[in-house]
Each structure stands twice: as C-alpha cells, then as structure tokens.
Amino acid sequence: MFSDPDREHLDDVSKHGGRVRSFRHERGNWASFVYVAFHPREEFLEMLEELESVARKHGVVLTKMEDFHISLSQTVVLRHHWINPFVQALRDRLCSVRRFLCVADQLKVYVNNEKTRTFLGLEVVTGQQQLQEVVSEVDKSLQEFNLETFYQNPSFHVSLFWCVGEVTNSLLGDCLLELQKVVDEFEDSDVLTRFYADEISCKCGNKVMSIPLC
C-alpha cells in the first residue's frame, strides 16, 4: 500500500480508512512512484500534533501521513520485468544531478483527482526549480515505458495529513490562517521545515530503491 495520494487501486475501502483506490491490482503489476523522502525530526512531529489539535477545533479530523515525501511522479503501474530497467534509466538520467536544499513552510490544501481525499501539506518555497529539473528527467524515463508523466505546473509539497472526502472549505479561511500561525511561530520551525534532497527514491510495491545525488 502507498501513502501517495494520487493513484491507488480498487479494493476494500474498509481496510484503508475509507480511502478509495482508483486502479485495480493485477498480479505482476507493481504500483510505483518516484519521490524525495523527508525524514522529520522529533520536534517536527510535535508541531504536527499542534496542527492536528487546531484543525479539530475547526471541526476537521486529520489523519497523519504514514511517511513524508515530495512526489516527483504520479503513481504508475510497472510490470515486474520493467522495474530494474526503469530504475536503471532513472540512475542514468540522474547520475549528474547535485543535491539541493528544500524549504517547505507554506501550508496548502490539496485534493486528489477523484476528490475522495483532502490533504494538508507544506508547499516547497525553496528548491522548486531543482525539483522541476528532476521531474523533467523522471518524465523522460516514464516516456520510455509509455507511462503517464507528472502534472503540468506541479505544486511540490510534503503532505502532512489526510482525511476522507472533499473538505477544502473547512480547512481554508480562518482555519488555514491559524494553522499557518502554528508553523510560523513554532520553535525552530525554520530548521524543521528545511532539508537537503540528497537522493531520489523509487518505490515499487513494498520495495524502495534509492538513487544518490552527487
């Protein structure tokens, strides 16, 4: 199972907190996506607890993401025998990319394509150009396998929470302002919301392959 919000296959929603998957699982097919992992400090998780509490006061119950990352592709289906060639194509294209700084400190509300889940995330404000350059190379690798490329003009972000359904209106306005205030005023937030992208990861099923940047 993936924490990536955009594409998930159809199955028993009761096993996934009410989330709806959008493509059916088939033997030999592996749901896969490319991303930059974000490994938060303990203090970052404390900040998330405060955000969750504020949202609850506004009537929104949020569920914390199981892991944190910046997506660099949509979730696509790879045949088993495509996995190694696809990852090698990524390695070849990314071998000369240098590590870079990302700062993600602006809260933003997102909804998946099917409008079945709403997300609260931190948008990247520093590192967007470098992420777009990486996406360009990832897209080329996807095209080699006739797979769908990433979104046009993406909003790079780290998803923090999700909830079932389309609840954008409940999170916007005063709620979002109060949530952003938590981030802005949290001790050492300027440190907690910045990290270096020093490797690109590709997750296929439950297997993660990492590509170090130079």
Rank of each mutant, 00 (worst) to 15 (best):
F2P: 12
S3K: 05
D4G: 05
E8G: 06
V13K: 14
K15S: 08
V20M: 10
V20K: 13
F23P: 00
H25E: 07
W30A: 09
V36G: 05
P40A: 13
E46Q: 14
M47K: 07
E49A: 08
A55R: 10
T63H: 13
M65G: 03
F68R: 04
I70H: 00
T75L: 10
V76D: 10
R79L: 13
I83W: 10
Q88A: 07
A89G: 14
C95E: 15
S96N: 13
R99A: 08
V103Y: 01
L107A: 08
K108F: 03
V111T: 13
E114D: 13
T116F: 09
L120R: 11
L122M: 13
L122K: 07
L122D: 03
V125W: 02
V125Q: 06
Q128G: 05
Q128A: 09
V138S: 01
V138Q: 03
E144C: 02
N146P: 04
N146V: 12
L147V: 05
F150Q: 00
Q152N: 01
N153W: 07
S155H: 12
S155I: 04
F156L: 03
S159G: 14
V167E: 10
L171S: 05
L176Y: 05
E178H: 02
L179W: 09
Q180L: 03
K181M: 12
D188M: 07
D190A: 14
T193G: 07
Y196H: 08
C202D: 02
N206I: 06
K207S: 05
P212M: 02
P212N: 05
L213T: 00
